[in-house]
Design a protein around this nucleic acid. Structure first.
Length: 457
RNA sequence: GGCCACGUGGCGGAGUGGUUACGCAGCGGCCUGCAAAGCCGUGGACGUCAGUUCGAUUCUGACCGUGGCCUCCA
């Protein structure tokens, strides 16, 4: 079986062939840590987590790096607003990010490079570009000269000339060409900065990824990933500076971009106040439900986020976990992965199709609840995409953690007595009363059972 | 204004030049004091208009709609 991935560069699905089949390299653009992570930050983290695990299942070694941008004007502004040190801000939100991603079953990457830990390498990088005359110094800035790289715009399919023509923005005086981008810029004395051959200052945003990729992996990596919104200018600029510095070696052989998360009605933006934070979402539903929701759409498609999506994911996972609970005595330690499931993922990470295979395994297990190998197949397959990783009993118990069990049992007992006396009016009143509290009663052959249902706010 | 992506049944969401996706919800039946769950069964779709074709949801074009990006702004 071969893995096929959609390469944004060629805009085609291509058979994935790593440079070194014994050591696959991936780099994904991580967050800028200036605030708590939202659902849009979570999508690439989850998608490329699945990709990394899939590759690990297929290749000897995979090295997955996801950076942390801890120097940026947004961070400087956040520090001013919160009246905190920059390092406090970046540490706080880096920890928050890690915590949130863990809640979504996202594994920690093999490497997590920080921009500020690579200032020296960035300065070397700029020096190289200056020496090779791909960059120039102007007014305390160092700028990349895009006219020196004739493939500029290939990834995002943009023509620099046309872009300038359509641009309404005033050209900065220190730039030779409007699209030239900053490699190094001056900092004020009271701002964060580092000494450099061009004075006290800080790096431009695009430089860190190129620099850290070169340091960790060398000239060319197999896969570079990130959100679709980063294609231009961020990734375009990375390609330009890396290719020029490394004598034309491509930065990455495969470029992958995930689609963006959209809110139900309006786009997610801070000014509209509809940014959905991961830390708030996981208070309401298990992280696995969020993860499942993110994977229920193919990663390249736009994803419209709303309550219905969460509810449906919740229902599906509840159904699966309750079957796992019913069959918990089966020995499913030997986790296998279904062939069709794997094939779906091998086809450019088709998680919706893979999930449909999960449904079919679920139905088969339902019909043959004694088949331990089938149960192992369901769990093993789901685990590959970070789903069904919880203990089925704990799954339901954790949902019931903040209910008054004693009171519920009392009411259930009253209802039982009413039913014995065939006072169904009274018993139904009690049932409604419990329902209002979010407790749902089912009368089974073994007597009444209750479960907590989610009440939408 | 320029470039790009997307538009599938009530909702979510794959896929395909001609044949069932799948899930959630719904409906009918069995069961139940009534429900629920479970089991059995079931209807329903490819934005609009043209073109290519024996035949298009699938290819081409136009249009409409939604979203993204467009020089240190995210």
């Amino acid at each position: 079986m071969t893995i096929r991935l959609f390469n944004s560069h060629s805009r085609k699905k291509e058979v994935f062939k790593p440079l070194n089949p014994d050591k696959v390299t991936i780099y994904v653009c991580g967050p800028t840590v200036y605030g708590p992570s939202h659902i849009g930050n979570a999508r690439p983290a989850v998608v490329f987590d699945v990709l990394a695990d899939l590759l690990r299942a297929s290749f000897k070694q995979v090295i997955y790096a996801r950076n942390i941008t801890d120097i940026d004007d947004k961070i400087i502004n956040a520090a001013k607003e919160e009246k905190e040190d920059i390092s406090k801000i970046t540490m706080k939100y880096t920890e928050q990010y890690k915590y949130d991603m863990k809640a979504l079953n996202v594994s920690f990457p093999d490497e997590e490079p920080f921009a500020t830990a690579h200032i020296k390498e960035m300065i070397e990088f700029i020096n190289d570009l200056l020496m090779k005359e791909f960059a120039y110094v102007s007014d305390d800035h160092v700028l990349f000269d895009i006219s020196s790289y004739n493939s500029y715009g290939m990834l995002s399919r943009r023509n620099p000339e046309e872009m300038i023509a359509g641009s309404r923005v005033e050209v900065q005086s220190y730039k030779k060409k409007p699209l030239d981008f900053v490699l190094w810029k001056p900092s004020l004395d009271n701002e964060i900065g580092w000494d450099s051959p061009w004075g006290f200052g800080r790096p431009g945003w695009h430089l860190e990824c190129s620099t850290m990729i070169f340091k960790l992996f060398g000239k060319t990596i197999d896969i570079h990933g990130g959100g679709e919104d980063l294609t231009f200018p961020h990734h375009e600029n990375e390609i330009a500076q890396s290719s020029c510095r490394n004598d034309g070696h491509p930065l990455a052989n495969y470029w992958m971009h995930n689609g963006l998360v959209q809110m139900d009605k309006a786009k997610m933006s801070k000014s509209l106040g509809n940014v959905l934070l991961v830390k708030d979402l996981v208070k309401k539903v298990p992280g696995e439900v969020i993860r499942f929701s993110l994977l229920s759409t193919h990663y390249r498609q736009p994803l419209i986020w709303n309550q219905r999506l969460i509810d449906q994911s919740n229902t599906v996972l509840n159904n699966m976990y309750s079957l796992l609970a019913e069959t918990k005595d089966l020995d499913s330690n030997e986790k296998n992965i279904d062939k069709e499931f794997l094939e779906s993922l091998y086809d450019d990470l088709n998680t919706p199709k893979a999930i449909s295979v999960l449904h079919s395994l679920f139905k088969r297990l339902k019909k043959s609840p004694k088949d331990s190998s089938l149960r192992a197949l369901l769990i093993g397959s789901a685990n590959l995409i970070g789903i069904l990783k919880n203990d089925p009993i704990e799954w339901f118990e954790s949902k019931n953690k903040d209910v008054d069990i004693e009171m519920i049992n009392n009411l259930i007992e009253k209802r039982r007595m009413a039913r014995e006396e065939k006072d169904y009016e009274k018993s139904d009143t009690i049932r409604d009363q419990l329902l209002n509290m979010g407790i749902f009663i089912e009368d089974t052959q073994e007597g009444p059972v209750w479960k907590k249902i989610s009440i939408n706010d």
